[in-house]
């Protein structure tokens, strides 16, 4: 009898020691530190030269590979405003807020040299960086880079669009503003 009772007490005590750790399970969360590796990261970077299974191995196109649609331009505008506008400004003049705070000023997109530059040149600047500008390849995937290129082209065109090509509504507004 006392033996059974003792066993019961021990069992309860043992159960209390059972900690299932449901709140902190033996797996890594994103960004969690690890003591297994010297640099402390649980997320490992692939070995240099690794090719992803679904990687696109075809050569980078030399010109815009997509039809330039309104959708592409809107995507380009969104990505440009996130990643480029802090320095290049939303209009591409190269006087963004970070430049106001002391960052070396980038050239304006509206100078002849950059108007004449190829689509591929702008794409490559985003991919590899240029002088003081770092590479944006890690945060801007190739499709988005082309969308940004299309939008930069639109910004450049906007300064040089012939008045005759404007839609009637915009032209009326322009005439009104010029007149008034």
């Amino acid at each position: 009898m006392t033996g059974r009772r003792l066993a019961l007490v021990l069992l309860v005590a043992a159960l209390a020691g059972c900690d299932q750790k449901m709140a902190d399970q033996p797996r890594y969360d994103p960004l969690e530190a690890s003591s297994e590796f010297p640099d402390g990261m649980s997320a490992r970077t692939p070995v240099a030269g690794t090719v992803a299974r679904d990687a696109d191995l075809s050569a980078t196109p030399t010109a815009m590979p997509f039809p330039v649609t309104m959708k592409l331009l809107q995507r380009g505008r969104e990505r440009f405003d996130i990643f480029c506008a802090p320095c290049h400004s939303v209009a591409g003049d190269g006087d963004g807020i970070v430049v106001e705070r002391g960052f070396p000023a980038p050239p304006t997109y509206h100078q002849p040299a950059l108007r004449a530059a190829s689509d591929r040149h702008i794409y490559d600047v985003i991919t590899d960086g240029y002088g003081a500008m770092y590479s944006y390849a890690a945060r801007v995937p190739p499709a988005d880079r082309w969308a940004i290129v299309a939008y930069v082209r639109a910004l450049q065109y906007a300064r040089n669009a012939p008045v005759a090509e404007l839609p009637a509504q915009l032209r009326a507004r322009l005439d009104g503003e010029a007149g008034g």
């Binding site: 969360d29 960004l31 970070v98 705070r101 002391g102 003081a132 770092y134």
Partner: peptide, 19 residues
């Protein structure tokens, strides 16, 4: 993705390499 992620050191350096 599920996780918002935190910026890599390079991201800070896109600006703080110069300012």
């Amino acid at each position: 993705s599920a996780s918002a992620g935190l910026p890599a050191t390079e991201v800070c350096m896109t600006c703080h390499s110069q300012i």
